[in-house]
Amino acid sequence: GDAYKTAQSSCLSGHAADSKPANAQQERMRKCNADAGAKKLAGDARKTFMSSCLKAS
């Protein structure tokens, strides 16, 4: 799922999957994305959740 996509993206961009994120914004995005995936959100519901999650973090 999302964890696999994140790991693949990190790997292909030359970063180790287990390395620390470059900044806090990336960490927030990763956490919110994982939360949205866990809630099985899609479409507008996912966009709304991501927006509020990123603002609140």
Rank of each mutant, 00 (worst) to 15 (best):
His15Val: 06
Cys11Trp: 06
Gln25Ile: 09
Asp2Gln: 12
Lys39Met: 14
Glu27Ala: 15
Ala22Tyr: 03
Gln8Ser: 13
Ala38Phe: 07
Ala45Arg: 05
Cys32Phe: 06
Lys20Ile: 08
Lys39Glu: 10
Asn33Ser: 15
Gln26Trp: 05
Gln26Ser: 10
Asn23Ile: 04
Lys55Ser: 13
Ala16Gln: 07
Asp18Thr: 13
Gln26His: 09
Leu54Cys: 04
Ala17Arg: 10
Thr48Ile: 03
Ala34Thr: 13
Gln26Ile: 04
Ser52Gly: 07
Lys20Gly: 02
Asp35Ala: 15
Ala3His: 07
Met29Ala: 15
Ser57His: 04
Asp18Trp: 08
Leu54Gly: 00
Asp2Thr: 09
Thr6Ala: 14
Ser57Arg: 02
Ser13Trp: 03
Asp2Met: 14
Lys47His: 07
Ser57Asn: 10
Ala45Met: 03
Gln8Thr: 13
Lys55Gly: 00
Gln25Arg: 08
Asn23Met: 06
Cys11Phe: 12
Ser51Cys: 08
Ala22Pro: 01
Ala42Lys: 15
Met29Cys: 10
Thr48Phe: 01
Arg46Phe: 09
Ala24Met: 08
Arg30Ser: 09
Lys31Ser: 09
Ala38Pro: 02
Lys47Gln: 11
Ala7Gly: 13
Ser52Cys: 00
Ala3Asp: 13
Lys40Cys: 06
Ala34Cys: 02
Ala45Val: 05
Thr48Ser: 13
His15Ala: 10
Ala17Thr: 14
Gly43His: 05
Met29Pro: 00
Ser57Phe: 00
Arg30Ile: 10
Ala24Ser: 09
Asp18Ile: 05
Leu54Ile: 09
Met50Phe: 05
Ser51Ala: 14
Thr6Gly: 07
Thr6Cys: 12
